[in-house]
């Protein structure tokens, strides 16, 4: 469940000892009758095998290094530079002065201190966390019954039902968000329907409200909640519920005392999968939310493209990562250790 966040942690052990083992085996082979004549065929083979293993492990590390760590370091570098008019719109890190021929290192902190000095950023952060938290709870409340229903459905029906959950992914994310504009706007599907039934006389103002933002986030991230929850609920041992019933526990109570606590890992995994991207969400609040829906993703966009202040925008991005991802990684680490202990 926790795969996307912890996958990096376990692997580094694999390269070292395995490679060492390969070499020592080769050493044993060397003590044979071949004297001073270099390595035997088997020894060479084992060495190559160890090298091969190292290569296999290196692929995911190389990927992460190239496409995650390097871009992050570039963003960090920009965040530590000063803004200037030009291309690129920030000062270079190393500057060679023409007069003295000396190289000066330009690293400044003030982009980060600037984030603290203006309320806008802190409010945007807190607002993002708040909106993401509410959206996560809504996803959990909506997703749990759906995941539960699929897990309890006849095995024949499970695959088609899961298919239906995943089906929206076949359309582009952006188109799905635009579709909601068509549904929610004043002359949209929903208002027309309500007017037609006579429930309302005037169209409701639905689009460009915080409510529309929640609808967009919940709709788009619901599958990320349902899938890990389903995986947890589906593999749960049904005899535990029979045992509970046998001990005098009616079904609703067995759900609270057995099913619910045992599905906590699925709830946590689903919540993280919804909460993290929702916090940094830009498209949904931009398209569906009103001008007062302040989220950090929009602030970031505005810094980059409206103000063209790349260093501050980079600082916002780095701060987002540090304040959001680092606590979650620590939490996962502690949780993993507890599970290991238990």
């Amino acid at each position: 469940m926790a795969g996307p966040f912890t996958s990096g942690a376990g692997a580094p052990v694999a390269g070292g000892p395995v490679a060492g083992g390969g070499h020592s085996s080769a050493g044993v082979v060397l003590t044979g009758p071949v004297q001073g004549g270099g390595r035997s065929g088997l020894g060479r083979f084992l060495t190559r095998l160890a090298g091969g293993r190292r290569l296999v492990v290196a692929v995911p590390y190389g990927w992460l290094l190239l496409f995650f760590l390097v871009p992050f370091l570039i963003v960090l570098k920009i965040a530590l530079s000063s803004s200037q008019v030009g291309i690129p719109p920030f000062t270079p890190m190393f500057e060679t002065s023409l007069d003295e021929g000396k190289t000066i290192v330009n690293l400044v902190w003030y982009n980060f201190t600037y984030l603290l000095s203006d309320n806008l950023y802190i409010i945007a952060y807190l607002n993002s966390l708040w909106i993401a938290a509410i959206a996560t709870v809504l996803c959990l409340l909506l997703g749990y019954p759906m995941a539960y229903a699929i897990a309890k459905a006849d095995p024949r029906w499970r695959a088609p039902l899961l298919m239906l959950v995943i089906l929206p992914f076949w359309t582009s994310f952006l188109i799905r968000v635009y579709a909601w504009i068509g549904i929610l706007r004043n002359e949209g599907v929903l208002n027309n329907l309500l007017m037609w039934t006579g429930l309302i006389d005037q169209p409701l103002h639905l689009l460009y409200t915080p409510g529309a933002t929640y609808v967009g986030i919940v709709y788009n991230y619901l599958p990320f909640m349902i899938l890990p929850l389903y995986a947890t609920l589906e593999k749960m041992d049904n005899t535990l519920l029979e045992a509970a019933a046998d001990l005098g526990c009616p079904p609703w109570k067995a759900f609270l005392r057995i099913t619910l606590p045992l599905s906590v890992p699925g709830m946590l995994a689903g919540s993280l999968l919804v909460f993290i991207p929702a916090t940094g969400e830009f498209v949904i609040p931009e398209l569906l939310g009103g001008p007062d829906t302040l989220m950090i993703g929009r602030v970031l966009w505005a810094e980059f493209f409206n103000n063209r202040d790349w260093p501050v925008a980079s600082a916002v991005a780095v701060a987002l990562l540090l304040f959001l991802v680092v606590p979650i990684m620590l939490f996962q680490n502690v949780q993993g250790k507890q599970q290991g202990k238990a």
Binding site: D237, T239, L240, E242, A243, A244, A245, D246, L247, G248, C249, P250, P251, R257, I258, P261, L262
Partner: peptide
């Protein structure tokens, strides 16, 4: 089942994994 004067010992034991031995027995 939850109203029958019967208790069962399951083949797989069906112990509640999130509860201690004590809590399992007290359930």
């Amino acid at each position: 089942p939850y109203e029958r004067p019967v208790n069962m010992m399951f083949q797989s034991y069906a112990l509640f994994p999130h509860m201690s031995v004590e809590s399992n027995i007290a359930f």
